[in-house]
Amino acid sequence: MRELSLNVLDIAQNSIKAEASLIEIELVESTEKKELLIGIYDNGKGMNDEQVQAVTDPFFTTRTTRKVGLGIPFFKMSAEMTGGSFGIESVPGVGTKVRALYKTDHVDFTPLGDMCSTVVILITMNLGVDFIYKRSLDSKQFVVDTRQLKEILGDVPLNEPSIVSWLTDYIQENTKQLTEV
């Protein structure tokens, strides 16, 4: 993938396929450690130990249109090639946590890219799923929680064009604030 934010979009699709009702996406960046952690946590149907073992192998998939699953192997590789690490924890019936840790100063670090687009598409294309998007840079943090937004919106859907445009600006402005001193 050309941007890590595309891997995030793809990994979150697994959570949606696993029928999660709540998906948390967390990005934790440390300037001092030169590290970025990306976590995608869901409350979907989960996997047993054997499945977790198998999914990092690019020949495991439960999909039927193609014999290989590529999403998790791609994500794992993107982290490991920076000298970082990758892990999946999953409990059947409880949910799955996927974490990738990056060394941001490594030459093979893929830029994060347009995280805002990833988050807005996930939120607006999956109105039945709630999302928490947490992003932090050193000691600064911001959080978007669709449960809070939906409470404000009532029966106005999050995919109303005026709301989508507000949400996009809201995420972009908050992201920008993280990097301002």
């Binding site: 595309l6 699709q13 590529l70 999403g71 347009d114 294309m125």
Partner: peptide
């Protein structure tokens, strides 16, 4: 199509463009 193959090939900006055009033209 938003599986890994679609996303890797550029489905995200395509999706965004559809959403945009529909909103723009109301």
């Amino acid at each position: 199509g938003m599986a890994t193959c679609g996303i890797a090939a550029g489905a995200r900006p395509i999706m965004a463009k559809f959403v945009d055009e529909i909103a723009k033209r109301n």
